[in-house]
Nucleic acid binder design. Structure first.
Lengths: 221, 221
DNA sequence: AAAATAGTATGAGATTTCTCACATAAATAT
DNA sequence: ATATTTATGTGAGAAATCTCATACTATTTT
């Protein structure tokens, strides 16, 4: 993670997003801009980060660690969205972690400095409710739509969602868990993609060779 | 739908739920209690109901109608939860409908009478955010956990979730859509349940004969 | 009353996905 | 450096699920 320090760029981003309109008070003094690179941890599971993020560019994933230590990919977060609102609303530490997939640019709000302002700002709370309600509906819709398709199609979407710079490199166990198929079958279909020339296996991960074909497959859903 | 008029029962319910604590002002004057019977429409798709519900007992389902007219079951709502918050937060009419599965008891808040009070009540907004955020996480978790199991298991859960008075009577097409399997296959597994004596087919619907066996199956997930 | 429509029902072969057994490579611990 | 664990891969038969074709209601429309 890296802070973006230039005052210019902060001003610039403020102008170009609606972010400031989500608050009933001037949020800029409490805000900085941070960049998370792929695989950076945005929210540590079981931590009290003290930061509320508003991601205005990038993709991230939401993970849960089970009692037995295995990690499950649970959901995706796509800009624009809030990250870490549960910590603000209080109640224990987050029971989930968030990790950057692509480069993520976020406004980072210092909760300690303005927690009570936020919690008493109806403009902000209304917008947060709206975001959450909207996302819940969209997610539910996607869930029920998604599951009907064969793995070929779901995997194509999944690769496009998790790919970075044309490289797919998810843990197979994690991917299989999220996609609801066995490890074995995931490998099988992945091998099919390689055989069909859609992907190429490299030491760094699976390189996307035929982006168009992947997109076509994914669009079936 | 039926109003529950007795002042006694309103007082009673108020005492026995935390409902009133979710508001920073006295909500009781704006609240009545309504009962929805199975299959009653709680929220009409494309309507402006003017009511915010807090369901404190019962189960309901969330439906979406597609452009081509087909209806998809999208999600379940279980007490306690809010229903219709999108209408309060404004933005057009709801793009989804909600129908009672079992008998549902709800506090019904007259939005017209206290919209601005609600939208300016940080206590309420905070609780709503919390509910929404919590539900989103729970849904995501369930979803990713769920999909791995064979239909036998998922159908068992589904039947338990949609059953009323021991009777399962969902539309097969709707159920198949939600469960992400073909109509054919759903019928196949349903027939298996009948053959195994778990369900019995009656003119009124599928009667649950072996509740325990259904529960056992469902608990595998 | 006939026709059209929507929901229910079943068979059979094709495809997808699973189970399980096992092998190899890479990362981590002792 | 060696054992141990973790992740990756592969084969083959079994089970789950899909596709498609085809009937049979019941309800609604004309």
């Amino acid at each position: 993670m890296e802070y973006i320090r230039s005052q210019n760029s902060l001003d610039e981003y403020f102008k170009n997003t609606q972010f400031k309109d989500y608050f009933g008070f001037d949020i800029q003094p409490y805000t900085s801009i941070v960049r998370f690179d792929p695989d950076d941890i945005i929210l540590e599971e079981g931590d009290r980060p003290g930061r509320l993020y508003y991601m205005f560019s990038g993709r991230a994933k939401l993970l849960i660690t089970h009692k037995n230590g295995t990690v499950s990919l649970i959901n995706f977060l796509e800009a624009p969205c809030f990250i870490g609102e549960m910590e603000l609303l209080d109640r224990d530490k987050p029971a989930y972690g968030v990790t950057a997939i692509s480069t993520c640019l976020c406004f980072s709000i210092d909760i300690a400095a303005c927690r009570s302002k936020l919690l008493n700002d109806v403009t902000f709370l209304q917008h947060l409710c709206y975001f959450l309600s909207d996302k819940a509906l969209g997610d539910a819709y996607n869930y029920s739509k998604n599951q009907s398709y064969p793995l070929k199609v779901k995997l194509a979407s999944f690769i496009l969602l998790t790919e970075n710079n044309g490289l797919y490199r998810e843990r197979h166990a994690e991917a299989a868990g999220f996609l609801g198929v066995t490890y074995r079958h995931l490998l099988y279909v992945l091998a099919e993609f390689v055989k069909d020339g859609i992907l190429r296996k490299t030491p760094a991960g699976y390189k996307i060779v035929e982006l168009e074909q992947l997109k076509e497959l994914a669009e079936l859903e």
